[in-house]
Design a binder for these strands. Structure first.
Lengths: 303, 303
DNA sequence: CACACTTACGATATTCGTAAGGATT
DNA sequence: AATCCTTACGAATATCGTAAGTGTG
């Protein structure tokens, strides 16, 4: 027995709908076939197949006239609507694929969000004006949580514990700098070692910040003389500028400390680094827009 | 050069959309292929073709996991909506094709609309409860005009002038009857000839009615003694019953005259007939619902 | 007999399922 | 080793275009 069209799951194609609409408009197989870039018999077969699948004649035709049946007239607005909806969906998808539309949600450490990302965001927004950007400036763990939950496309963070299902790509290794007042004794030291710094009062970031964690790991087992722990780098700036103490911060945060009365000096200590990772969900590709921003970030960082 | 997918007119099929949705739900090529009644490699090719046509990867897959890409997630609601819309359109069309939905607009002569059609309409409405009926009870010319303009599906009328583009199918030949009071001299006549009728005062339908036109054509060149011309058959009934005169009416209108004081007697005069036609647009099929009503009308008239 | 849709038919392209391959756990 | 997706490939199917057929004005 020949397999007839499945009335429950008919296989309808946009070609058939376009052919149907072309014929409804042209009222001529020959002209409609031309419009569809098909030979007339092939076009005729296309219509016949559609009619078979729908289970009804759609056109009354003889050699002299072609016109819609009542059922054809009933179907025409549906077909027009469907073709329009398909076109809209495909156009929207195309816009996203080609970077004209989109949204990227980035989670980034505050130390990156304030100083280093703005220029990149500005560049990206200029080259991709249709793409909306979203930035969550949070500590490392909340950043990673946003990625895990799917709310953020990727994060720029230091790694905490092991995270199954996430991939970590090393973006850069951030070296640390001493920050102190120009009139501080250390400002003129020739070579800076940890031992020389430890005696002075420190202004620290709080212990849950990635800056502090990297620093503590590097200093261990040395103990610093902690004068104050604060949450914001800008507060560190103010405290150091007021002469309350010194601090050690990563290179990417130095823009906070480019001030008249302050000195920043690199610490040539190999172990004293902070690793910044691009964190994303493993086995899941980035959206076109997110990939583009990711690529720009990597390019500007490494290039 | 291989013909790539036309980004402007992509050929998208419901099978592809259903496959996409099945895979998005099942997150497994094997299970989704089974759900789509396809071998797994064939299903895989179907997805690959769809991705090629859309110009983007829709799923991230490896041996361990299958999940939507961001673009796939963007497309999913569209696909779901499209499949739903297609299903709704096809279901609606199917309802019409199978007679569960529909509307039929009939135009019919008043002489048919009052006496003969109601029983047929009642029968049709009972057997096809989902189909809405519309009846325009008008004189022949307006009936035909409704058909020509597309407002009515078909008409039951006598033919007027020649009408290009319309088809006339003889439904029945209506014989004429004398109508008079029981106490009228003609009520007891053995054989009725036109000559015997002519001397009596007549109650006539107005000249633009099909009843009158058929009658005049048959009587010619005889002249009747016209007492009164009225527009409604019911008025004829009243006038004849009041003893003002006699009348000649077609068989299909006799239900108006089934009254205690009246007599109806067939006129065995071959030329005295009225032809009732089914009038419809040539080269245009009737809707399923209209065809069903048409068939019932013909069956009940001729069967 | 001219025009327009349908049917016939061989050629081409697509799609199918089975079987083998490759990657991951 | 087991599982799952991809690739390979011959077979079945569908679709195409050319050419002949058919019916109507």
């Amino acid at each position: 027995m020949p397999a007839g069209p499945d009335r429950r799951n008919p296989n309808l194609s946009t070609r058939q709908l376009r052919a149907f609409l072309a014929l409804a408009e042209q009222r001529s197989f020959t002209r409609a076939a031309t419009a569809c870039h098909l030979s007339q018999p092939a076009f005729s077969a296309l219509i016949r197949t559609l009619e078979t699948e729908l289970g009804t004649r759609l056109f009354d035709r003889d050699t002299r006239s072609v016109q819609l049946t009542p059922e054809g007239r009933l179907f025409e607005p549906s077909a027009r609507q469907l073709i329009g909806d398909v076109g809209a969906a495909l156009s929207d998808l195309g816009d996203h694929v080609e970077g004209r539309k989109g949204r990227v949600h980035v989670a980034a450490l505050p130390s990156l969000a304030a100083g280093w990302l703005p220029a990149i965001f500005a560049e990206f927004m200029k080259s991709s004006p249709g793409i909306a950007l979203n930035l969550s400036d949070l500590l490392s763990d909340p950043c990673i949580a946003l990625v895990r939950s799917g709310k953020a496309d990727f994060a720029l963070a230091s790694t905490g514990a092991g995270h199954a299902g996430l991939s970590f790509e090393l973006l850069c290794t951030d070296r640390f700098y001493l920050v102190c007042r120009k009139d501080h004794p250390l400002a003129g030291e020739k070579t800076l070692t940890l031992k020389k710094l430890v005696p002075y009062p420190f202004i620290h970031m709080s212990r849950n910040s990635s800056v502090r964690q990297a620093l503590d790991a590097a200093l261990h087992p040395l103990q610093t003389q902690t004068l104050l722990e604060v949450d914001q780098l800008a507060t560190v700036t103010g405290m150091v500028e007021a002469g309350l103490g010194i601090s050690i911060v990563p290179a990417l945060t130095l823009f906070h400390f480019e001030r008249k009365n302050l000195v920043t000096r690199p610490l040539a200590i190999a172990s004293l680094t902070r690793r910044i990772y691009v964190v994303r969900r493993a086995q899941e590709s980035l959206s076109v827009a997110a990939q583009a921003l990711h690529d720009l970030i990597v390019l500007r960082m490494r290039g």
